[in-house]
Every structure is written in C-alpha cells, then in structure tokens.
Amino acid sequence: MPYGLLLDGVGVAYGSTEVLHDINLRVAKGELLVVLGPSGAGKSTLLRVVAGLEPATRGRVLITGRDVTGLRPGRRNVSMVFQSFALFPHLSVAENIGFGLLVRDVPRAAAAERARLAAEAVGCAHLLDRRPGQLSGGERQRVALARALVRQPDVFLLDEPLSNLDLELRVEMRAELRALHGRVGAATVHVTHDQTEALVLGDRIAVLRDGVIEQVGPPDEIWSRPATTFVARFVGSPAMNLLPADGLLRPLGEPSDAPRGADRLFGFRPEAVQLGWGEGEEGVVERVDVVGDDAYAYLRVAGQPVVARVRSGNRPAVGDKSLVAVWWSDVHLFDAASGRRVDPP
C-alpha cells in the first residue's frame, strides 16, 4: 500500500524528559488519521516533528518514500493549519492564501489564480480582498484551510483546527473538513482532544497518552474494542465504567469459566448498564445528570461507582435503590496491572 507518511520509531526528548516514545505510524495517501489524546500527551509535538518544526531525537520520518528526517520544514512539502490559524493581519485573504506561493517565487498572477481556486474549494472566494481582522472565526478557519491547500502538499497537518470555533460552527466545519479531505487526497494528520471529532472525522484514530500510542485503529474498533483502560475511558462520555472483576457485580450471561480474579477489570459503557432489570446487584443513586432525552445516573454498587445512561423519562431519583445489571456481551475485560485488553478465552 503506498503510504503518504511513515513514522518509524520516532522519539522526541527534551533533555531527560521524553515527550514522544517510539512512535510508529503509517498514514496512507488519501487517509485521514486523527491523533487523539488529552492535553500534554504529545499530539502537537507529533505534528511538529512531521512538519520539521521540532527535531526527532530518534527514528525516521518518511513522506511518500523520501526520508525527510533531516530536511528543514520548507523541503518536506507538508502544509499545516494552526490552532490559532496564524493568518497575517497585514495581508489580504488572497495574499495570505498565496503566501507560500509568493515566497516560492511563483509569479504574482499565477499565485493569485491558484489562491482563488483554493479559496473556492473551501468556500471563501468572496473574502479574497478582506483582511483577517474583518473575518469571523469560521471565515478565518476557511482561509487557513485554503492556504494549506493551495500548494498540493503531500501531507496535510491540522493542529486542533476546530477548537477555536463555537460548537455549531465546529459541527459544520467538521463535515466540510471530511468532504474536503475526500477531494484533496493527501495523507492527513488531524490532531484533536475532542473524541467526537475523532470518531466522526477519522479513517483511523491513534490514541496518544504521555507520548505513547495506546491504540491505532478505525473509529469503530477504538469504540468497540479499546485496547487499554485509558482508551476505554478517554473515548466515550461519560467514561466507561471499570470495576474489579472480583466484585459483587456479576454480568448476566457470564460463562462459568469467566475470570473472577482481582487481576482483571470489567469495563462497560454507561449505555450498557441496565437499571431495574429484575436481576443484578443493588445500587444507590447518588447523582442524576439530565441531558435532554438522556439522563446519566451515578450509582454506588457495593462501594464502586457505576454510571448508567437511562431515558430521562424514567430516570431514578437521588437516593433511589435500583438493581444494576450488565450483559456479559457488553463487558470488556482488562488486565488490572497493565490496563491492557484481555480477550476472553
């Protein structure tokens, strides 16, 4: 499979502080990889290493077959959309989009024409004569995208590009980004801390934690087969319930040879929890959050916290006692010590 971007054992350290640890990633041409992780996980550093803004302490960065590890940013044919958009306030939108062409000595007329085409592709052609100061957040976002697209880069890097937008706009731009990516065909790395964004946008998701990739896979797999407890809890809101396997709560339909040891953890999502099924362990409702049609009941079951999603129409009240049950088929099994997923035998 032709790849657009390959990270081969990339590590980054500042002195003795390791920021990225042995990153191996392969992004195909035309693929959109989302790097998901909490702040401080090293997501931005990963992007900056690909762009060449940060040197890799170890490993190699390859772009469409070229080893670019030692090349300066301008020689890698990548383009980047920054979180702050980084538009030049003294340049018009057209000049901003054409900036990369002008400094590469593309003739002015040709640069203007290509800038116009790129602007049309992202729907900001009507803004070409304005200055960034006169644009709204969403419009600036489009201009930043157009500027990244104008050069036909091999790798397209997006550093939390939607985090500066309000929710409505974010949802809209998310869809447009997805559509745009389909047309561009470059290997794209999109960094975000927003799990919804990752699930919606990504062809694949790489979950990063403390400079280590916890799991790489399609959104479905990240959701349905989280490789570690970290991934399990980071993706999904509220986070997945994790209970010691030797606790009182026994999943329904649990096979007789299921592990019951203290070295195992049960994980199940709030939507898998059944309240008042007639079976299960008794829990006490401590808090209820109502979110429109849904409600989240925070219970305590045999001393352990459990979150359950219920229809807000028949939500329990605080202090209610309720039987808490979960089906074995909804349960993920993890090793308590390493946090790694353990597949039932």
Binding site: R48, A51, G52, L53, R72, P73, G74, R75, R76, V78, S79, M80, F82, A86, F99, G100, V103, R104, R151
Partner: peptide, 9 residues
C-alpha cells in the same frame, strides 16, 4: 513556523 513550512528565506 508557517513561514518555515512555506520555505520562506
């Protein structure tokens, strides 16, 4: 950084 990515002198 943007200027560097665009290979500006």
């Amino acid at each position: 950084e943007l200027a560097a990515i665009e290979d500006a002198t």
